[in-house]
């Protein structure tokens, strides 16, 4: 019932080693955050016994290869008042989903947009777009805009609001993987 990667040749290649042990050490050292000092990369370099130049070069390389999406502040969206978190899910014809998914992803209120496999018969939806708002009304107004864009290709949709965060440890690379 699941889409396999071979079906989607542009799915992430998971076996290409594009980081080495030193990159992994940098990831482990920064995944909880950068030091809040004037020269944070120098502090990291000292911890890792590397030169600051090397740390910065490797970070830039990981940005170029997409291992690092971006470097910046990560807000807690609840603290900013974004309390309504709606996962909108859509049933879109397979031959249209890529074209439409790209367009849905361009709405500035959509934070994640993915194609995922259906699980028939219980789950007919193949396009997932996360929409955040300060209220459910705001989320619903945004979802209406997506519905307007999809038009007749929206064969069905639903919104699943999160009601409770049950766990949020984030994605952490264990320090032990340095041994690899």
């Amino acid at each position: 019932m699941n889409g396999s990667n071979s079906q989607f040749p542009d799915a992430p290649v998971v076996d290409a080693p594009i980081v080495d042990a030193i990159d992994r050490a940098i990831i482990v050292a920064t995944q909880e955050g950068l030091p809040l000092v004037a020269r944070p990369y120098h502090v990291l370099a000292e911890q890792l016994q590397l030169s600051a130049e090397e740390v910065m070069q490797r970070l830039r390389r990981m940005q170029d290869s997409g291992v690092i999406r971006r470097i910046g502040v990560v807000p807690n969206h609840y603290a900013l008042g974004y309390r309504a978190n709606g996962m909108s899910v859509w049933n879109v014809p397979d031959e249209q989903v890529d074209r439409l998914g790209e367009q849905v992803g361009k709405f500035d209120f959509v934070s994640h947009c993915y194609r995922r496999p259906r699980c028939l018969p219980q789950w007919p939806y193949n396009l997932f777009a996360m929409v955040h708002g300060k209220s459910r009304d705001e989320v619903e107004a945004k979802v209406e805009k997506i519905a307007g864009l999809l038009g007749e290709y929206a064969l069905g949709h639903d919104i699943l609001y999160s009601t409770r965060i049950l766990k949020k440890t984030g994605l952490r690379l264990a320090g032990s993987s340095l041994k690899k």
Partner: peptide
Amino acid sequence: VLTRIGPLFQIERI
């Protein structure tokens, strides 16, 4: 208000 400050990784890339 902020949960962290630093790089955001796409871990499946590694």
